[in-house]
Amino acid sequence: SGEFLVIGSAGTGKSCLLHHFIESKFKQDSNHTIGVEFGSKVVNVGGKTVKLQIWDTAGQERFRSVTRSYYRGAAGALLVYDITSRADVPGDERADGRERGGGVPEVRPHHPQQDRVRYRRNGNWELGSGIGNWDWELGTGNWVWELELGTGNWNWDPGREGLDPWESGILGNLGIVAFLKCTPNVLHGIESGTGIGNWDWGLGIWDWDWGLN
């Protein structure tokens, strides 16, 4: 089995995404996660059965020290962020806060294809859209997958203005695509016995040596 983290800022929809992945339905009346919650699902990838143990973490930056202590045993992670919130988007100039000890905000462009994730148009941050982009993005063979949720805060207020990704059906598919596409790498991590287990707290997840890929 593989330990798999879901990380990202508060209100980006980590728990709803997980719920949708496991139950295949939209979750209403969602609480915010304190600490960590769990899900598990058996998935079949290339004829191999993997039991994913999914750790759904609290989003508030204050909890990062707790969340980071879970990086150690994880084989993979899904980073969920809200593209409409500048502070959330990896690589944003405001987000170079290693000294603030953040997890998500410390994400830096680490990958030649990073720019493709950012959807910056005319100087504005815009909604990520279209499953095609996602498939393509997910095909890069990265260890930590980045999933953009376009509308922010939608999980507790589906009536809010703007596109509801669950309603539109995009996100429902995305959630599943994102998890499944990650799995070969989780598997790799388990099989090679390395996983991301050697990560050091001080290093931060993004300085990890990409050589294993």
């Binding site: 508060a10 969602s30 609480n31 915010h32 508030q60 930056e61 507790w156 207020d157």
Partner: peptide
């Protein structure tokens, strides 16, 4: 500022039922 935003977000996620 973020924590004021977060209060707003979390209130609606407190005993939602």
């Amino acid at each position: 500022e973020a924590s004021l935003e977060l209060i707003k977000l979390d209130i609606s996620r407190t005993f939602p039922s």
